[in-house]
Each structure stands twice: as C-alpha cells, then as structure tokens.
C-alpha cells in the first residue's frame, strides 16, 4: 500500500474570557498549612466557562473557529473524534452513550462522518490525532476533526467542598481550568509534516490520578497523588526524550517551538530542565499556562492559541507537543505550522 502524507491544516482554541485569580479559589488562607499554590505551581488563575457552557458548547466554539481557519468544507470532513476527559454539561450531567462526537458533528452540520470518542485522560487529544493521522495515511479518510471541550472547573468546585487537611488528594483539582481545542488534519503533498513518537503507557502509575463521579454531589471529582505522579513522569522523561527523538528522526535543538502538557508552569520548567540535560537546548519553550491553568486534553491547543494571539508563530516553523496523561500515557507529536497562520484572527 502506498501511504499518503498528512498535515495539520488548522487548529483553534476557545479560551473563556472569564479569568478567575487563584486567590478566589485557592487562597493560602483557605488552604491546609496556608499552602501557597501560586508559589508551588506558578499558577496565577484559571478560566471559567459561562453558566450555559458545558463540554459540548466549549467544543463547538473551538471546532467552529478551527473549521473557519481551515477553509475546508464541512461536507468533506469524514471523521470526528471527541477526546474530552468528561462530557459534562453546564448542569453537571454527563452524556454517556452514544459518543459525544455524534452530537458535535450534528451541531456543526457534518453529515456522514464516522464519529466516536477516545478516552485517554490528558493524552486523549494527541492519541486521537495519532489515530486520525493513520486513517489519512492509509487512505481511509480525507479530513478529520479532533475536538474536546473541557468543562473541568466543576472539579475545582468539588475540591473546595472538602476539608483539604484530610483530603489532600483533592488539591491537584485546584490547578484545573476550562477551555477547548480542535485540530483539523488532512492530506499533504509533502512527507513528515506530522509525525508521532512511539506511544507508551506506564500502567504501574495508573492509580495516581483518578476521575469519577462525586460521591454525594452532582458531577465529578478527581483525586491525585500529585507528587508521586510527577516523580513517575520525571523519572522516565529523559529516556523518553532520547528515544522519541530517535524514533521520529528529529533534532531536538532544531525544533522551533516546544509545548508540554502543563500540569503546572513549575512542573513544565522542571521537565524542560530534563530535556535540556538529555536532548539539548530548547529554542523556545511555551510555558504560559499561568492564567489558563491545566485544561486537560486541550492544554497544548490552548497554549498554541495564546501563541497565535501573540503573533509568535510563523508558517512552516516546527512544533513539538509533549503529552502526558493519567494512566500514565507518554507520547509526542511533531508538526509544521500551517500556511497562512500569520493571518489567523
């Protein structure tokens, strides 16, 4: 079989306007031992969706902007994957069956596309892009929309109902924020415009971050052993970087833009130190999640959108997304920025 090539045609995020400073939801005075979450994580605040915005509405905002930027006709999109961690509506109900991707496609007027959900925690987006990329390369489809809306400040609210002295595993929930992201990918004339590392799941860490229904209130909760989880990732990161660069046949120091899943700005800085010690200097690290927080599967796209708004990206420059998700999944994606990105509004 002769394989086609693929590329990122467009991406977009919806960054909710409503900025909430960290002192409004995690002030030291309200924390056990007056814990200063800003000092520990580097986080200054998060974004909160509007009252009527849930996973679906957030996803539609990003997807609509992404499709507009791509100039692809919705009739030509033949795959829609939703990869949000949950599918929570604004009233804290969750859609379970069938996949939310069907409803996203219907609302966008996409007819006849294959639709399904992928669940791989914060790595769901890169996992889905990898699947869609293969579908394009093997000729099964022409265009794929990968989308997620993360309505996860509900987890912040849940954490705040607990006595955090006794439920310290709820603390990591305070580092989350709302947002959404979407990518549109399609065929490319050129090879290697979109490549992925070998994906790994380090399943011995699979109990360190768990999201499920709250016990006695509407919606979800998340419990995390944050220090152990970070240790698990950091302990494998150097080898992961070396191996991934070889696998993707890339020179780390030649990559123009590096984006890591931002569990927190301080954690990203620590990870960047490991990268510099193992694979070389980073040209430009985008670690500006201090005012958007960790938005789960959409986090890379949210940071990319911030870079677009700050005119930091140019057509043809190279980007790597380094992805981690509870489980623990580790994978990376390298791509070239689409033509015309300088004109995106």
């Amino acid at each position: 079989m002769v394989e086609a090539h693929s590329k990122i045609i467009s991406f977009a995020s919806y960054i909710p306007e409503n900025y909430v400073p960290i002192d409004d939801f995690a002030a030291p005075a309200d924390m056990p031992s007056k814990l200063d979450l800003n000092r520990i994580t580097g986080l200054e605040g998060h974004r909160r969706s509007k009252e009527n915005e849930g996973t679906l509405e957030l996803a539609l905002q990003a997807a609509t902007k992404c499709i507009e930027r791509s100039k692809v006709d919705v009739a030509d999109i033949d795959l829609v994957i939703n990869c949000a961690v949950g599918s929570l509506c604004s009233e804290l109900r969750s859609k379970l069956s069938p996949s939310l991707a069907n409803l996203i496609a219907e609302k966008l007027g996409i007819k006849g596309a294959e639709c399904f959900d992928v669940s791989n925690a914060c790595s769901g987006m890169v996992t889905s892009l990898m699947i869609a990329d293969s579908m394009i390369k093997t000729g099964q489809i022409n265009y794929a929309l990968i989308v997620a809306g993360e309505h996860i400040t509900a987890l912040v609210d849940e954490a705040r109902t607990n006595n955090l002295w006794f439920k310290s595993k709820a603390l990591a929930s305070l580092t989350l924020g709302d947002g959404s992201g979407a990518y549109l990918i399609g065929k490319s004339e050129l090879p290697n415009q979109l490549v992925f590392s070998e994906p790994f799941t380090l399943a011995r860490f699979n109990k360190l971050c768990v999201g499920e229904a709250s016990k006695n209130r509407p919606g979800p909760m998340m419990r995390t052993k944050a220090a152990q989880l970070q240790q698990g990732v950091m302990g494998n990161l150097g080898e992961f970087f070396i191996r991934s660069m070889k696998y993707m046949d890339l020179d780390w120091e030649a990559i123009d833009h590096v984006y890591s899943h931002p569990t927190s700005p301080r954690a990203v800085k620590k990870g960047a130190g490991i990268a510099e010690n193992t694979v070389g200097k980073i040209k430009r690290l985008h670690n500006e999640s201090q005012d958007i927080a960790n938005t789960a599967s959409t986090s890379h796209c949210m940071l990319l959108e911030k870079s677009v708004q700050l005119n930091q990206l140019k057509s043809g420059e190279s980007v790597i997304l380094v992805s981690f998700g509870s489980g623990v999944a580790m994978l990376a994606m390298h791509f070239y920025l689409p033509e015309g990105i300088e004109q995106w509004s």
């Binding site: 669940s119 399943a203 011995r204 699979n206 109990k207 768990v210 499920e212 998700g325 489980g327 623990v328």
Partner: peptide, 15 residues
C-alpha cells in the same frame, strides 16, 4: 464503576 472517566480503563487492564 462509579462512572470513572480517567485514567482509561485499558490502563487498569494493562496494570
């Protein structure tokens, strides 16, 4: 069980 959403169930199987 308990409407778990993360991590993926497959990671529990692998583990």
């Amino acid at each position: 069980r308990n409407f778990r959403t993360e991590p993926a169930f497959a990671t529990h199987i692998q583990g």
